[in-house]
Design a protein around this nucleic acid. Structure first.
Lengths: 240, 240
DNA sequence: CAAGAAAACATGTCATACAGGTTTGGGGCA
DNA sequence: TGCCCCAAACCTGTATGACATGTTTTCTTG
């Protein structure tokens, strides 16, 4: 087969399945397929590659697990819309196997979100501005229910990433959401007094206002301050 | 409409395979496995989950495609070391299906690398500083051979990411390498004169010197300038 | 011509078989 | 006793066939 290494990063592995994966991704590229477009059936691929259906299926299934394609019973597979896909799994794997620390994740988030928030301040539509503001309001309103605050917190940051109008930022931020869910409460608990908790929530209000005002500089400063406080809370909780 | 995947991001899909994937990742988590540790054999999993080996295999294979686990004939699967894994495939998929533009990738890289270069200036070991400098030198030395310059260019940026001592940055930067390989030459060609090409290579020298000098501010400025020039070159080439 | 049934096609899962790689344990030899 | 080598046990890689179930197409029939 082609097995042209150094081209695609997919699989330098030997093995028929890896070759099949490459054949499928190459098919997408060569045919110029976009989201929703149909791929060949397993039977077609089986014939084209002269391998068993087992192999072809494992290849399709792998791409499906990465959410590069959509599969469902009875229907042929199709090219998937952009999705955090495997990205979040990679991150989570790194964290659960202790190859990545939560602190490191936060540093990356801080770096990226200082940019997304600045872009959001410049590019957000009215609807996006309203959405962001709404999440900040919901956090304030539910300040007695940590779980709910957390979900709106995450939604808040995702909305900002979306408003940056760069899907790659959204992709990365969304990939971190899982880790955030597992550590958020810890940070919350270290904020002993209710006053401190409200101050943290108000940090989101500051950010939202800066975005609405269209002030990227200010928005970035508030975001930085927010992260610095969050990281400090995690460190106080003993999470390095 | 907010997606409701509130728990793990792995698979909200129905289906035995998705369940098996979750069972395996959960096994890793619960047993606290780290890189290199062995997973149960396919036969074990088949018994534990009461499904056919086909299903278990597709699950293992999916995780292997994401490089969360290592598989090889005769040996049981093991937990994988952190690797760009599926991340690069997600990015490439987004670009080839035109859901992500090259310009957007460069914006993300600029954002991240302004941080990695600053961290590198602060944290780099002597060996890392030497390595970074060496790649800059090799670029200068091979300035007549674009392919070689490109590979050293990529290695240069990856080395900086490594020197930031945050594996998440490395992960992301490495995930972009594939896209870079496909667009780098285009940017190079727009630098018509040899003088301009040398100036671009010298930009890397500036960055390296700032890192060695331990000056994060200056390093970040040089990196920003470098990216601004690169993006301009791509835009001149008609890649939006 | 339209509605509905049947056929064709697709994926989901299972069982079985065998080739070839890896680990393990035991037997034979020094 | 201690070491080496080989066979058995175990494991993954691939192929084949079968059947359930879901989807699309086609054709019949009212």
């Amino acid at each position: 087969m082609v097995s042209d290494r150094s081209m695609t990063p997919e699989e330098t592995n030997p093995g028929l399945v890896s070759a099949a994966i490459q054949a499928i991704t190459q098919h997408i590229r060569v045919e110029g397929l976009g989201p929703g477009d149909l791929l060949p059936s397993e039977a077609d691929m089986t014939r084209k590659l002269s391998v068993s259906r087992t192999v072809v299926r494992e290849a399709f299934r792998s791409l499906s697990a990465m959410r590069l394609i959509d599969m469902s019973a009875g229907r042929r597979a199709s090219v998937a819309k952009l999705d955090i896909g495997a990205m979040s799994m990679v991150i989570e794997h790194g964290v659960t196997t202790e190859q990545i620390s939560v602190h490191q994740v936060y540093d990356v988030r801080r770096t990226i979100e200082m940019r997304t928030v600045a872009l959001a301040a410049l590019r957000r539509s009215e609807a996006e501005a309203t959405e962001i503001q709404e999440y900040a309001r919901l956090m304030r309103e539910n300040c007695r229910a940590p779980e709910i605050v957390m979900e709106h917190d995450i939604a808040f940051h995702e909305a900002i990433a979306r408003a940056s109008h760069n899907p790659v930022f959204s992709l990365i931020i969304n990939a971190f959401s899982g880790v955030t869910r597992r550590t958020w409460v810890i940070g919350w608990r270290t904020r002993a007094t209710e006053e401190e908790q409200i101050k943290m929530i108000e940090g989101h209000g500051d950010i939202a206002r800066a975005i609405i005002a269209g002030n990227p500089q200010l928005a970035a400063e508030h975001m930085a301050a927010h992260f610095d406080k969050s990281v400090k809370a995690l460190i106080d909780a003993g999470i390095a």
